[in-house]
Amino acid sequence: MHFNFNSTEPIYLQVASQIEEAIFTRNYAEEEQIPSTTEISRDFHINPATVLKGINLLVSDGLVEKKRGIGMFVAQGAYEKLVKKRRELFYQDKVVQVVAEAKRLQISEEELLDLIKRGF
């Protein structure tokens, strides 16, 4: 993990997104323990409350679960949830824009599909 303290993105969101990315890339497997709030705050000189705020976002999204007295673990099904979430974001952020631009350029659906196949 590394954090950009000069970024406009809050540190707690950076914590959440980096752990989420590690789950998505399977650096943290389902049911595997993730670094503790204390470890992250100590290693990266971040306030523990800030780290906890980021991790709590993942808990509320169902990606991480707290096991009292043991630690934080990647939740069962977390990878699938992230794939579903990212596919929807891909659709919203990329596909919708590509289709809109294709319409402005008067590219037919068939032509667009041909272009996508060529790019694939």
Rank of each mutant, 00 (worst) to 15 (best):
H2P: 00
H2S: 14
F3Y: 12
F3I: 07
F5R: 15
T8A: 09
T8M: 13
T8P: 05
I11K: 02
I11T: 11
I11Q: 06
I11E: 12
L13Q: 15
L13V: 11
L13G: 04
Q14G: 12
V15Q: 08
A16P: 02
A16G: 01
A16C: 00
S17F: 08
S17V: 05
Q18V: 04
I19K: 01
E20R: 15
E21M: 02
E21I: 04
E21D: 02
I23A: 03
A29K: 14
E31Q: 13
E32R: 08
E32Q: 07
Q33A: 09
Q33N: 08
I34C: 09
S36P: 07
T38A: 15
E39A: 09
E39S: 09
E39L: 00
I40C: 11
I40Q: 01
R42N: 14
R42K: 00
F44S: 06
F44L: 10
I46H: 06
P48Y: 04
P48I: 07
T50W: 06
T50P: 01
T50D: 00
T50R: 10
V51A: 02
L52M: 14
I55V: 14
I55H: 04
N56Y: 03
N56D: 10
N56H: 04
L57S: 14
L57K: 13
L58N: 00
V59S: 06
S60K: 15
S60N: 15
S60V: 00
S60Y: 06
L63Y: 05
V64D: 09
K66W: 10
K67M: 09
K67N: 05
I70Q: 15
I70G: 03
G71K: 00
G71D: 07
M72A: 14
F73S: 01
A75M: 03
A75E: 05
A75K: 06
A78C: 12
A78W: 06
A78K: 10
E80M: 07
K81R: 10
R86F: 01
R87W: 00
E88S: 08
E88A: 13
E88Y: 09
E88L: 14
L89R: 13
Y91S: 10
Q92C: 02
Q92K: 11
Q92S: 09
K94F: 05
V95K: 09
Q97L: 03
V98C: 06
V98D: 01
V99F: 02
V99C: 11
V99S: 09
V99P: 09
A100H: 08
E101Y: 04
A102H: 04
A102M: 04
L105N: 06
L105Q: 05
L105I: 03
Q106I: 01
S108A: 05
E109F: 01
E109N: 15
E110V: 05
E110W: 04
E111A: 08
E111R: 03
D114M: 09
D114N: 14
L115M: 04
G119T: 06
F120N: 15
